[in-house]
Design a protein around this nucleic acid. Sequence first.
DNA 1: GGTACTTTTTACATCGTTGGAACAACGTTG
DNA 2: CAACGTTGTTCCAACGATGTAAAAAGTACC
Lengths: 341, 341
Amino acid sequence: MAVTLKDVATLAGVSVKTVSNVVNGYAFVKPENRRRVEEALAATGYRPNVGARNLRRGRTGFLALMVPELSIPYFGELAGLVITAAQRRGWSVLIEQTQGTRDRERATLASLGPHLVDGALVHPEALESADFPDSVGGIPLVLLGEHAVEVDIDHVAIDNVLAARTAVLHLAGLGRRRIAAIGANSRRGTSELRLAGYRTALAEAGLSYEDSLVAPVEKYHRTSGASAMKQLLALPERPDAVFCFNDLLAVGALRVAAEQGLRVPEDIAIAGFDNNEEGSFSLPSLTTISPDKTALAEAAVELIHRRISGEAAAAPQDVQTPFSLEVRESTTGYDRDIVRT
Amino acid sequence: MAVTLKDVATLAGVSVKTVSNVVNGYAFVKPENRRRVEEALAATGYRPNVGARNLRRGRTGFLALMVPELSIPYFGELAGLVITAAQRRGWSVLIEQTQGTRDRERATLASLGPHLVDGALVHPEALESADFPDSVGGIPLVLLGEHAVEVDIDHVAIDNVLAARTAVLHLAGLGRRRIAAIGANSRRGTSELRLAGYRTALAEAGLSYEDSLVAPVEKYHRTSGASAMKQLLALPERPDAVFCFNDLLAVGALRVAAEQGLRVPEDIAIAGFDNNEEGSFSLPSLTTISPDKTALAEAAVELIHRRISGEAAAAPQDVQTPFSLEVRESTTGYDRDIVRT
DNA sequence: GGTACTTTTTACATCGTTGGAACAACGTTG
DNA sequence: CAACGTTGTTCCAACGATGTAAAAAGTACC
């Protein structure tokens, strides 16, 4: 069925290796033979057997990307960008979903052998430092998206503390005094960093920290945001602003605010994190931290590329990609006169 | 670095083939040897080289999934489900993004060789029948999500005509008389089918079809929905309902309705298609057609599995997966009293 | 002990590709 | 024209696994 080098060689009347040389752009091939081989290649429609080639070369040509779930917009988008970035460098990407559970994250890490992929981009959610074996099957790793895991591994992320601080200072700058947070989570990682940024900002703005204003969530999903918001709105003294640790939580919060007849941002301002496109169409549109996801994907692929080809420095890199604050209606109100009667 | 069968064999003091036999569950291995091999396997942490195994077996172990973009919620979710379904059957999934352009779809199809993947799940957007080569590199294909491409290939989808008809009849049943549609598109495929369902429903409801009420779009994105909605609202006689060919379009439409001070659904009802989670949190929440995506992913993977293992019937299958109408606030109004002042 | 049979293990070839070395052809040069 | 370097081609082994077939070991029976 499939055409092999041998078939092409027979057709062109040369040896297999000569065909291989042509395919791989080796310089010293007689023009006459090159022409014959190229004709035979075209005639047969030859395509190299990637598996065999990689077996011989000792590479697999695959990168793994470990994320919680593709159905979360942030990860869907990120995965798309990673695939594109990897493709440009000749890699294919295998996506592993962990549902954000520690067990599955650990199992996935363990399953990544040097045979399956050349390297892995890992976006952990619940993993702890201890879960990282000395080296995961001997393949290079790059961590994405947080830094609370204290391991000597390459890492790419935005400055989560600074970003959270920026968002909260924005709320404080608008005169909000009871600023709540949604997204605390007992697991290490993102949550901790954003919480730290939140606290720093409160302190800088001269506001005091209150435990009751920090609503914990199980997952970073819309429903969790909704439950957390209900909890906050039930407080004796209601918050006048909420910083949500991602946009999905914020969307849940927006919905609950509306259900309870609160005006956003007049009664309560809401800010998110991630800049999902969803947030620029919500009512009101969502003020959010916008990480440069393209830069993130690029940096991650570039980093693992360098590791794999052995060019990388010995010391683990720590790359920070840029972010910006996207100010929209959920904190500063409507530009035009949107009638809401 | 990597442990091979040979290493294990040396350690256990048996031949390579015996280790292979143990690994593959061959029955006739002396208990004593089996034990020794298993110990050696555990001690070395052996993991088979998938590439080598597949080279020998003539399989690659990979499926391709071709979609427009992962950043579109529907495809992110679908990809996640396909990956899960494929994993259960021992396949890994390679995702190819085409941005929905015919050129890239064609190029991607052409690049799928039997060496790279065992089969492909293809969700075309712009492809036409003529673009399908007799057989794509000799590997089985399964088409996802539409049926306008008239090719003799396995196919899984919901009944798009019926689904669209259901949604529009729902709107008509609420007494709406000027029902518009957003999502017409010169390319074949989904658009045509949903448009057909729309027209059928209008006829059944005794409403006449008007060209001006059908707004074309470039892409099925939120911004396109917004532009189309602006166009519809600028008509001399405004529609009192809009059926959007997917939820993203509907979200764009919702936003524009609000910007122009229209109440949904009182002034204009809006329905979507896909049941993205986003739509159950929007304000108002979105009435939509909910395809059973899990069933779709399962059916597709099952179908290609059967094709690849040669069990499938000669004739191309045509599998219809179920859908339902999810009625929410954007057509029937708010349950509770959401204050919108 | 020999024969026939079954169970267990091994050697070898093979999948499609490429690296390396050997080899062949060629033109240059002394 | 012999020796040489350059260019071009081929042969062989190897990547890691498994199918095939043959060899080896074990068992049963006469």
